[in-house]
Lab assay of single mutants.
Amino acid sequence: KTYTFRVRIVDEETGEEKEIEVTAKSEEEAKKAAEELKKKYPNLKVELE
């Protein structure tokens, strides 16, 4: 079973919002993916929905 999570990304500089879908095998995995995004884009606000 896989879970699909919507991750909302807000670029703090431009105020631009993007939504991406993360497919993960567990909620834990999705959280890790969101953390990776935060590391990659430090000025983005990442929200897991």
Rank of each mutant, 00 (worst) to 15 (best):
K1C: 15
K1H: 09
T2K: 12
T2G: 09
T2D: 15
T2Q: 11
T2W: 14
T2N: 11
Y3H: 12
Y3K: 11
Y3I: 10
Y3W: 09
Y3F: 10
T4L: 11
T4C: 15
T4W: 11
T4N: 07
F5E: 03
F5G: 01
F5W: 13
R6F: 10
R6P: 02
R6Y: 12
V7E: 00
V7P: 00
V7R: 00
V7K: 00
R8T: 08
R8C: 10
R8P: 01
I9D: 00
I9G: 01
I9R: 00
V10Y: 13
V10D: 00
V10C: 11
V10Q: 05
V10E: 02
D11K: 01
D11M: 03
D11A: 01
D11V: 04
D11N: 12
E12W: 10
E12T: 11
E12M: 13
E13F: 11
E13H: 10
E13R: 11
E13W: 07
T14H: 02
T14D: 01
G15D: 02
G15L: 04
G15F: 02
G15P: 00
G15C: 06
G15R: 02
E16P: 00
E16L: 09
E16F: 10
E16N: 05
E16D: 06
E16I: 08
E16S: 04
E16G: 03
E16H: 06
E17C: 15
E17Q: 08
K18C: 15
K18R: 14
E19F: 15
E19H: 14
E19Y: 15
I20N: 00
I20Q: 01
I20Y: 11
I20C: 14
I20A: 01
I20H: 02
I20P: 00
E21F: 15
E21R: 05
E21Q: 11
E21I: 15
E21G: 02
E21A: 06
V22F: 14
V22T: 01
V22N: 00
V22E: 00
T23D: 06
T23K: 10
T23N: 06
T23P: 04
T23Q: 12
T23V: 12
A24H: 03
A24P: 00
A24V: 12
A24L: 03
A24I: 03
K25I: 11
K25S: 14
S26F: 02
S26V: 01
S26D: 08
S26T: 13
S26Q: 00
S26M: 01
E27Q: 10
E27W: 15
E27M: 13
E27L: 15
E27H: 12
E28G: 09
E28L: 10
E28P: 05
E28K: 09
E28S: 10
E28H: 09
E28Y: 08
E29M: 05
E29Y: 03
A30L: 13
A30V: 06
A30Q: 01
A30K: 01
A30R: 02
K31E: 07
K31R: 12
K31Y: 13
K32C: 12
K32L: 13
K32T: 08
A33G: 04
A34H: 07
A34R: 05
A34Y: 15
A34D: 00
E35G: 06
E35A: 09
E35F: 09
E36V: 09
L37F: 08
L37A: 02
L37T: 01
K38Q: 13
K38N: 05
K38A: 11
K38P: 01
K38C: 12
K39A: 09
K39R: 11
K39P: 02
K40A: 08
K40N: 05
K40T: 06
Y41Q: 02
Y41K: 02
P42Y: 03
P42C: 05
P42G: 04
N43H: 12
N43D: 06
N43P: 03
L44D: 03
L44I: 08
L44T: 04
L44A: 14
L44G: 04
L44Y: 10
K45W: 07
K45Y: 08
V46F: 12
V46G: 04
E47K: 08
E47S: 12
E47C: 10
L48H: 05
L48T: 06
E49A: 13
E49Y: 04
E49K: 12
E49P: 08
E49R: 12
